[in-house]
């Protein structure tokens, strides 16, 4: 029986990901294309929101992926620290800029939506503030990766930062809730309780979320492959220098 850990072998990873990458890329293109066209042009305007409601097709999936990317980094960091699989560390490194971009998209689309809804681009609302803090965590994490030359030491240190940062991120979430009661509506989407979002919006939204998940996976695979190739080049250069 083959073990999941076999995919941590760089060569096996390169082989498997070369097959998976186009699959996820095509799946992302299809579901995002259909979901966005359906959402933007084929749904009615909500009575109390107007056409601005349609930004949820980008805002909600990107916000979900912003958090999921951090969770993925936490898991891969733990795997690196415990089992020393290089692919795991490189996947964490690859996911960080994508997660940061998702956070930025969620913040910007939120600001654009906030203006017609609340009359202001920015309020220090708990949810918005939490995302801003998450953005800072991403920034620090990426900066630490870039600052350290030895790749193994960088992987170790960023993993430790990711674990400690996760604890503080959760703590910040509660602190921020305690600090300010906000304007933002509660989580309006869950799989078992969909009454918050009307049915007409629900299916294209699910498609967009699936599209963002596939896009994220495809981008992480692509970037991890790039990181592995970069490591190989590094090793070859080092060998040249020794010979």
């Amino acid at each position: 029986m083959s073990s999941l850990w076999e995919y941590a072998n760089p060569q096996k990873f390169m082989r498997t990901s070369s097959v998976l990458l186009p699959v996820f890329a095509v799946a992302a293109a299809i579901s995002l294309g259909v979901g966005l066209v359906w959402g933007f042009f084929l749904t009615p305007e909500a009575e109390n929101f107007g056409s601005t409601v349609k930004i949820i097709y980008i805002h909600v999936p990107s916000a979900m992926m912003a958090i999921n990317a951090w969770v993925m980094m936490l898991v891969t960091s733990l795997i690196w620290l415990v089992r020393r699989h290089h692919v795991s560390a490189l996947a964490a490194r690859a996911a960080a800029p994508i997660g940061m971009t998702m956070t930025l998209i969620a913040l910007v689309t939120g600001a654009i939506w906030g203006e017609p809804m609340w009359g202001t681009y920015w309020v220090w609302d708990p949810r918005l503030t939490s995302f801003l803090i998450l953005f800072l965590f991403y920034l620090g994490y990426i900066a630490l990766w870039e600052a350290i030359e030895n790749p193994d030491a960088a992987a170790d240190l960023t993993s430790v930062l990711c674990i400690v940062g996760s604890v503080f991120a959760v703590l910040s979430r509660y602190a921020v809730n305690f600090w300010s009661q906000g304007l933002h509506q509660g989580a309006s989407l869950s799989l078992d309780k969909k009454e918050n979002v009307a049915d007409v919006f629900y299916i294209p939204l699910l498609l967009c979320i699936a599209g963002f998940v596939c896009l994220f996976v495809a981008l992480v695979l692509l970037r991890t492959r790039t990181e592995i190739r970069a490591r190989r080049i590094r090793a070859m250069i080092a060998r040249e220098r020794m010979a």
Binding site: L136, L139, G140, V164, G165, F168, F178
Partner: peptide, 17 residues
């Protein structure tokens, strides 16, 4: 500078409370 960037987000809960 990197130190400040790493530490400031971690200071948020302490500052708030």
């Amino acid at each position: 500078l990197l130190l400040s960037l790493l530490v400031l987000p971690l200071y948020v809960p302490t500052l708030i409370f």
